[in-house]
Design a protein around this nucleic acid. Sequence first.
RNA 1: CGGGGUGUGGCGCAGUUGGUAGCGCGCCGCGUUUGGGACGCGGAGGUCGUCCGUUCAAGUCGGAUCACCCCGACCA
Length: 416
Amino acid sequence: MKRSELFTKTTKTVPADEAALNAKLLIRAGYVHKEMAGVYAYLPLGLRVLEKIKSIVREEMNAIGGQELLMTNLQPKAVWETTRRWDDDIVDIWFKTKMQNGEELGLAWSHEEPIMNMLRDYVHSYKDLPVAVYQFQTKLRNELRAKSGIMRGREFLMKDMYSVHATKEDLDRFYNETIEAYKRIYDRLGIGNLTYVTFASGGAFTKFSHEFQTICEAGEDWLYLDRERNVAVNEEVLDEATEELGLDKSKLEKLRSAEVGNIFNFGTDKAEQMGITFTDQDNTQKPFYYGSYGIGVTRVMGVIAELFSDDRGLVWPDNIAPYRVYLVNIGDNPEVLSRTQEVYEALQANDIDVLWDDRSVRPGEKFADGDLMGIPHRVVVSEKTMANDNLLEYKGRTDEQAVNVSLEDLVKKLTD
RNA sequence: CGGGGUGUGGCGCAGUUGGUAGCGCGCCGCGUUUGGGACGCGGAGGUCGUCCGUUCAAGUCGGAUCACCCCGACCA
């Protein structure tokens, strides 16, 4: 992609209506556009980041047997009445609307009930089990107050997976496999070393659920961490969990964290409430065991933006940067331009995402833009570099000093 | 939903005791520039969130309303 063709612009001025660092940077760099409080549009750069995060999540979900699908945003009232969760006193974040004939509809804040209801049509026997399905879906939640930029919106993108099983043991097995898959996801997203599996409040069926909490000053949760045993507990279940797990409360470290994932073991509750059963081997009707597993995709993006930024702007991990290389030509000397073109094509030929800042603006502006956008690798072509054995100037986003490399070595470095 | 704050060109802001709107950035044109967000000259762009009221006169005063932000409560 050439920078001159990218319609979004960067800006030096900080938006006045944002306090959250992630929103300030993402808006300034042209990743997101604020539609209204808690509602953000994803522009080409932002969408590329989201898609890269999704690819990682998708690979890991597929690896444990998840089948991707796409549920709907419009949801029938009846499905939610079976678990009493249509009631605004029980779920207070509903967006609801009506059809022309007056029939009430819900706008998806979760898909737990609709997924179960859908599975009812296809899963009838123990032979069909287990099943795990997942989607990337927009969730709409009528939060009293939106805050923290894209970390907590009224509209956000979530990966939600659901699994149904014939036995408790099988659900437990899958639940644990999912925990491992989630760890791999956070590792690949570059936040693995800051992310902890955390005990949090459960539901009716289990005492605790598990959250994945990333240590982050901008988070809204408090995490109590036992570094020695590598166990973390959410503040909301601190007393119960420390007792249950035999932790020494005085040794726990209290840290700000952001919830980047949450998984629930529902047992058979949901299936019982909804009256959904399968025929087991012994020809009796039994309710499914049901688990649900969420990752807030847009929230993760916000957390990463917060965690890795510096005073010059965003700093994306290589894996999810919208482009990996920010290519800069200095000056419009035809030889420099044709050399830059050559580098541009070589990178593309090796499947390295490159954004070429081909504008005829001063070098400082290009450097500042590349830094603000958080592109991990910067490559410069100029008369100076060409005079220097035709080497390229390379600088990592967080490097102090640039170094000279050949095109071959650059490609090698970026494809290893 | 309780408390606090803010709405003025695209963005960030100023605007005195009420007298008919200005600055920086950005944008357009011309020229000079080109290794960390250049400079000169010339331009375009605003019924001051909205409505009602007070007044000869409202960005400015009063009321209502909407939106946005922060703190709290709540939440993936």
